[in-house]
Design a protein around this nucleic acid. Structure first.
Lengths: 138, 138
DNA sequence: GTAACTGCAAAATATTTGCATCCTT
DNA sequence: AAGGATGCAAATATTTTGCAGTTAC
């Protein structure tokens, strides 16, 4: 596990630092999406707020994580388990938000459908976020 | 037009005030979604920032407008032309964001598809946001 | 006249930037 | 050793709250 964390960072040409390892580990342990705030709270050691911002920004740029748009526009981040290249993120799964417990998850096994748009529109990416009750809450 | 604006407000048990009329008018004139910032800028008369916040909040609660989750998590608001009741918003159309000009529109004529989730998940609402190139930019 | 709405001030939050220091390679 | 990452301070930006004055009904 420790090794794989360092490997992910190296693969993305990032130096392996304490905070990057810890934050990436958090994401790996979690199977739900995390908000900036969650990261500050859940990390055993406290990181500087600024470091969290910068680390998330870096991970985003490298395509290690992706953001999930939510109806309440709180920003959630989740690991990219798909094949994301730097810059070009290909996120083809559906996201689920439980209105009861609040967790946000990536439903890797549910793919986004192909949406037919009116003439003249070019689709580049489709985001699907389903709200409802998750397995644990129902 | 003026009349219909007042009517919408009355229908929602809101008193008809200057700022509510002006902000609602802005939405009616526009066929794209607006960010909080757009509203401050585009309104002929300048409203207090706080008034804009409170007005949008009120409109949201009454179901006059709805928010659109965007990949960059900027908050956009658009008129509900569907039948939205207070509290329960039924937003069954697809949203489109142009990566070129940045506009966000409601594609009223494109309905969100039915997404099949794994056993145990209950769907309550589905949000679809498509990014790409709009008609005007292509 | 009363209740609700607005605008100002200010508080609370969130995010960004600069810079000196420390860590990774 | 050199470049990049971190942490602190502080600058900005965003959102919320309290309250007095004003407006809608």
């Amino acid at each position: 596990m420790e090794d794989s964390i360092a490997e992910v960072l190296k693969k993305n040409q990032l130096s392996v630092t304490e905070s990057r390892r810890k934050i990436l580990e958090l994401f790996l342990q979690q199977d739900t999406a995390l908000a900036h705030h969650d990261i500050e709270v859940k990390a055993q050691e406290k990181f500087d707020r600024v470091t969290v911002y910068r680390t998330l920004q870096t991970f985003l740029e490298k395509g290690i994580i992706h953001t999930i748009p939510t109806p309440d526009n709180s920003i959630k981040y989740a690991l990219c388990r798909d094949n994301c290249e730097e810059g070009h993120h290909h996120d083809d799964h559906v996201h689920f938000i439980c209105t009861s417990c609040g967790i946000t998850t990536c439903l890797e096994e549910v793919h986004v459908p192909d949406i037919k748009l009116p003439k003249g529109y070019k689709t580049m990416q489709t985001e699907v976020v389903v709200s409802g009750i998750c397995r644990a809450c129902s």
